[in-house]
Design a protein around this nucleic acid. Structure first.
Lengths: 351, 351
DNA sequence: CGCACTTGCACAATCGATGGTGCAATGACT
DNA sequence: AGTCATTGCACCATCGATTGTGCAAGTGCG
């Protein structure tokens, strides 16, 4: 009843109530009162009033004064994806432990949207920004630099700011090896039986495709040109690619390298309504880890990108000067089929 | 080179450059210039300068003046979960289309953290808040009301503000029916062969458990007391529950009602390292939809909660007075095994 | 020409918190 | 008592944008 829909108390309110000046109230409540030689008694009084009236600072006002906001941004392509959302989970914990407020927004892999989103966040004077999987990291960089905003690229590298990315070449190499190893010497995999689906013209895909080619050539002796079906990061396009392949060949390849969990969803759509037998003997490598994906009816070897390490490294970099910009590779991990890993959620109390 | 790390331009900078007063510049740039009878020529000049100097408004200053920020918050328990992250995806699109900036934060299902997080967001004068799956919605409500912040509960209801939740009773009923229907008349399911794993003492779980009990009794004629293993929303606790069950009985139940995808991850952990044969014949109902979970080696019937409809309804409610608070039920959908649904990501350009 | 309007804009207060500076009161010391 | 240092706090400008108000110059009309 006491504090209905009344506006929040300000230092001016407490100033009147306590008989002290607003600046004294401010000093007490932001912790600088000792430095400003405010008497302990005065402070106590003000603390009491603050508690009684549920005072909390107006962070916009403080931010305006400081040209900082206490907000720290994470810009992801999409929320609805285990890789990015587990990154967000880790990110939040880090930011909170720094006493700041995490803000996660998505920019839909649209360069224009990416820049607009950065602009918006900058208008709130955010203190830092991680740019995850941006289509145009350097475009976002322009915007950030013009505003003097500290930022780090994650997952896809830019040329103007520090970047922390997966070691996609190495990851794709070990994944391709693992797929090939899955077939015994009695009936080994032939080069024309292993296809890569997914990917687009971004740094990560290019690296993975290069490693895929190189490893195929090294291990299988050959690598036909049509072994890569580029589909973008779209389930629907990936589905279409599988359907085209199936229409042409009457079956799926024996083995698949799927570029991401999003592309894997294209495979799921292909599976829906088709007989399970169609997928017998299939071996899939997926460049992403999803616990449910790991238990499909056929073996799915996965790559788990180490998002915790990437976020940690990014926080290390955010406070260091960016010149010259460097790219840091974080080694991903091969996950054998039927693995249920622990994740960031496991650190929560109970759930 | 031009705009190195120089501070952002303000209306005062443009004021000097244009020879107009700051208030004129402000009026031009915030669109009220016609109302304030600023000459078109003057406006043009200022628009030009603004563009040239890449002016963007300081939204903290604007927010301070307006006691609004243009930020709209979504507080979820965790990011790392398809249900919540797809909700976030839908939420973002809505907020953007309202011309506001979405802010997604997680509160870890910790009542204290929930209140603190709300406090923080309020300190930034956010314009609205959706409280998703809160452990203590009414506690958060207190905080919001004291600040006059519009808010709606989603997924778990409160008693003091409008709530939009899944029709958990109905969903659990049709899920339980579907599980039972999965078994033919030759070898029908016995009451002691169907167990519920997961859930805690929240509204959703209580409703689901009630429906589970009622449906079992109605369809199978009986319902032993120990048919519900409460584990919270924790993969690890759920794993432990499965292990206990298995240790006691030497096998899993024939059929499972798993309370959420998070609890399903506990089942995955149980599966890891155990022979696939152990899960032959198993039928699972899962109260959540995950595309990968839909294609496990045994039939998994899922409930897809309609997060799009819930978000849409919540936006409808946010602008209406909250008295008296009502709870709106959104019907969830039964998803047969091996289904790969389209999701919010499919509306994106390509990926 | 004189008066009433309209046009076009400047002025200044305001939102809430911060921090540099100044100043009175008190105490310490010669 | 006089000097100086310290204590304890108030004053005020400031961050950038918004908006109510006031006012000079221009226009129209009798």
């Amino acid at each position: 009843m006491d504090s209905q829909v009344r506006k929040k108390a300000t230092i001016y309110d407490l100033s009147v109530l306590s008989g002290s000046s607003p600046s004294t109230v401010s000093a007490v409540l932001n912790g600088t009162w000792q430095k400003r030689r405010i008497a302990r008694d005065t402070a106590q009084t003000i603390f009491g009033l603050a508690e009684q009236h549920q005072y909390t600072a107006n962070l916009q006002a403080r931010g305006l004064r400081h040209s900082r906001s206490g907000l720290f941004g994470l810009m992801v392509p999409v929320h609805d994806n285990r890789y990015f959302s587990s990154m967000a989970q880790t990110f939040e914990a880090h930011v909170r432990s720094r006493g700041q407020c995490p803000v996660v927004v998505s920019a839909s892999r649209d360069p224009e949207e990416e820049r607009r989103t950065a602009e918006t966040l900058i208008s709130y004077s955010i203190d830092g920004l991680f740019i995850v999987g941006a289509t145009d990291p350097d475009g976002v960089h322009q915007v950030c630099r013009a505003a003097g905003l500290r930022h780090v690229n994650i997952d896809l590298p830019g040329t103007k700011a520090h970047s922390v990315i997966s070691d996609n070449y190495e990851g794709a190499r070990i994944l391709t090896e693992a797929i090939i190893d899955r077939f015994g010497p009695d009936d080994p995999l032939r080069p024309d039986q292993l296809y890569l689906f997914g990917g687009r013209n971004d740094h990560a895909s290019r690296e993975r495709i290069a490693a895929f080619h190189a490893t195929k050539k090294a291990r299988l002796g050959d690598d036909p040109d049509d072994g890569v079906q580029s589909t973008g990061y779209s389930p629907e396009m990936t589905l279409a690619a599988f359907e085209r392949f199936h229409a042409r060949n009457g079956r799926l390849p024996r083995a698949l390298f799927v570029n991401s969990s999003i592309n894997m969803e294209g495979l799921l759509r292909f599976m829906a309504g088709r007989p399970p037998e169609m997928f017998e003997g299939l071996v899939v490598g997926c460049y992403d880890y999803d616990p449910f994906g790991s238990f499909l009816p056929f073996p799915v070897i996965m790559i788990r990108q180490n998002s915790e390490a990437m976020i940690a490294k990014a926080f290390e970099l955010i406070d260091t000067a960016a010149s010259p910009p460097q790219t840091f590779l974080i080694k991903p991990e091969l996950i054998q089929p039927r693995s249920a890993l622990r994740g960031p959620l496991d650190t929560l109390k109970d759930g």
